[in-house]
Write a protein that binds this DNA or RNA. Structure first.
Lengths: 193, 193
DNA sequence: TTCACTTCTTGCCATTTGGCAAGCATTCCA
DNA sequence: TGGAATGCTTGCCAAATGGCAAGAAGTGAA
């Protein structure tokens, strides 16, 4: 499979020459993930970062009452992994499962460490990627503080409409911080408008 | 003023030799910040990262309705700055203000870039610091999704009791994602227990 | 095809939180 | 020191959300 999208993904985060971007892209390995397969389960160290070529994955944890709580959705041109577990090489509390068949490009922790060392531009790419992820997480936390559930739902419609067609309602509800009953009602109200 | 705490702060994030830690600490410059002074105002690029030796600061934004929303509290042995604005050198939407007189160690963006380049251990320290901040933010977002306002309040009592004595109730309330009236009631209920 | 399972909706009611305003105490200045 | 501003509490009621359960519709597997 062509690494065109992967190269574009890299250059989108850190604008560098095609040749440098290709050199980085070469470190990634293709992988097919069948629907419902896990790329990470809780209690394990996250060993690889997956850049998604196609398909959707879902990250979730089990809360103290055993409820499945969706932490994040991963779609095309995002990286699916537990950042904290991966970079600190500690056990993850998170599960990441394919919602659909997926094609990804992955890189192991070891390869990433070596590549950080060998390719300064990759180091910078990695740093910017981290910062972008931090910024996105902060945005999301602010929306949890400031916005109503309905506003968060509308944001999700606008930013990631496909996921609403793919993930079951209860997953979307827990991602938004509400119950599936409430989301069902919000959706009904929103449809009226 | 002695850089003992600063050196310990560095080694706590990334265990390295005293001499390396001191070499990094040397890049930080002392600064006194009087109560109510701002170290960052919205619309400006965050130009420095402040490691707090003593005192408390508060980060906040104004939401669409002009309400003051507290994003974070900064206390001893944390860094006060807008990570995204600082590392990407873009305008911040955030304000950071001293809640009390503060003593800090700061480093400018330029010095940090030079030091990243010159000291590989500092680079690694910076990366770990970013990852720790990411992890803390993720924890906080999860608590917004999973926990009740009262649980979040109790968490704050346990993790940062001093801030409850220093920051006004409405700041703490918006930090927890609720109104000051609600927090006042939650506090009353909690006191009964 | 059938049967179990999942998904989604909805009704009922409880709980949590918000919005607003009044009242009181404290603090901060001029 | 007087007056304004700020901070906190509380009463009243509305709005948002949760918990639970029932039922309809869709899905998947033997």
């Amino acid at each position: 499979m062509s690494k065109t999208n992967l190269v574009r993904f890299i250059q989108n985060i850190f604008p560098i020459s095609d040749s440098k971007a290709k050199q980085i892209a070469d470190k990634y390995v293709q992988k097919s993930i069948p629907k419902n397969d896990f790329i990470l389960t809780e209690g394990h160290i996250c060993s690889a970062s997956h850049v998604i070529e196609s398909g959707f994955l879902r990250g979730f944890i089990y809360d103290v009452d055993g409820n499945d709580v969706t932490i994040s959705f991963y779609s095309k041109d995002t990286s699916a992994y537990d950042i904290f577990s991966f970079f600190k090489q500690v056990r993850s509390t998170e599960n990441i499962q394919a919602l659909t068949d997926c094609e990804t490009w992955y890189m192991s922790y070891e390869t990433m460490q070596e590549s950080f060392h060998a390719i300064p531009e990759f180091r910078e790419f990695g740093r910017l990627n981290l910062i972008n992820n931090y910024g996105a997480l902060k945005e999301r936390m602010l929306s949890m503080i400031q916005e109503t559930a309905e506003q968060r739902y509308v944001n999700l419609i606008n930013s990631n409409p496909e996921i609403l067609q793919i993930a079951p309602l209860k997953n979307i509800a827990s991602y938004l911080g509400i119950t599936d009953s409430s989301l069902s009602r919000i959706r009904k109200e929103f449809a009226k408008k």
